[in-house]
């Protein structure tokens, strides 16, 4: 009984925190079905017209969605290759300067996005003629690398390297060893890291703000621009779709490797 009393305070705070965390998301989902422009509670009916608005009117949300997907998918694919290779190079053996190299790989995490975005803007404007898609893609490829590398290092920390020696002793060549033994075992962890990085890039709005051009604008920037002119529940409808996407991702991650990876 004594222990139960002790944990009452943390329990109450936890419940309040959980409510606080979901409140704006629940509000958005409810608002997306609002029949009126001003969101009121309790709602005065039910309407899907804001969802129709995403597809029919000139919100440009769909082109923004396409652009964001193009950037996020390609940046994630590039970084899986770069990041997993880099993580393998620093985890297999211990060597002098290993921590320094890891610090170097994760250094983009410690630089404010706005500063990096601005620096890229200046460099690209000096070079000239670099299309917005490439500018944002290169920028995102740099800022999500630390997340893939850290995640893969964490996955590899739990990997039994003796398995590679076993494969080698059974006369597998290094490439076979990697593709048949190592990769299948670390794949779920890498997939989860890739999913996180994909979402990071997909939601990123700082590099997107400074490096986009009128012809190439990503979805978060489209949404922010829309807000400046109108504040109707079309915003809630597109936000709800993004919330559903995130919820699907987290359930997927839980299935893939469990959620303990976030506690490291």
């Amino acid at each position: 009984m004594h222990e139960d009393r002790v944990s009452l305070f943390p329990k109450i705070v936890t419940i309040l925190v959980l409510i606080f965390l979901v409140a704006p998301l629940v509000v958005i989902i409810l608002a997306s079905f609002s029949p009126t422009v001003l969101v009121v509670f309790p709602p005065k009916g039910f309407s899907l017209k804001w969802y129709a608005n995403i597809f029919t009117s000139s919100t440009n949300f769909l082109s923004g969605l396409g652009n964001s997907l193009k950037v996020a998918i390609v940046a994630t694919l590039i970084d899986i290759v770069l990041g997993v290779a880099a993580a393998l190079s620093v985890t297999r053996y211990t060597f002098k300067g290993k921590h320094l190299l890891i610090a170097f790989f994760t250094s983009p995490m410690y630089v404010p996005s706005i500063a990096f975005a601005f620096v890229l803007l200046r460099v690209f404007s000096m070079i000239g003629g670099v299309p917005a898609y490439l500018r944002i893609l290169l920028g995102h490829s740099i800022i999500i690398i630390p997340y893939i590398i850290r995640n893969t290092i964490a996955v590899l920390a739990g990997y039994n390297w003796l398995l590679e020696d076993a494969a080698a002793s059974l006369s597998a060549n290094p490439l076979q060893t990697f593709t048949k033994v190592t990769l299948p075992l670390i794949k779920p962890g890498i997939m989860a890291g890739a999913l996180l990085s994909f979402l990071y890039s997909f939601d990123e709005a700082v590099l997107g703000s400074l490096l986009s051009s009128p012809r190439f604008i990503t979805l978060p920037i489209r949404i922010m621009n829309y807000m400046e002119f109108s504040f109707d529940p079309t915003l809630a409808a597109i936000s709800t779709l993004l919330i559903v996407m995130s919820l699907t991702s987290i359930v997927l991650m839980e299935r893939l490797i469990g959620l303990d990876m976030f506690l490291k």
Partner: peptide, 30 residues
Amino acid sequence: TMMIIILFPFLVSAVVRSYGWMVILGNKGL
């Protein structure tokens, strides 16, 4: 379930989450 609730906003765009607060905290907000 609690872990999912805590992690889930983490994966939602800052734009979307700020929008949610605008609906709640605005002058004519909830």
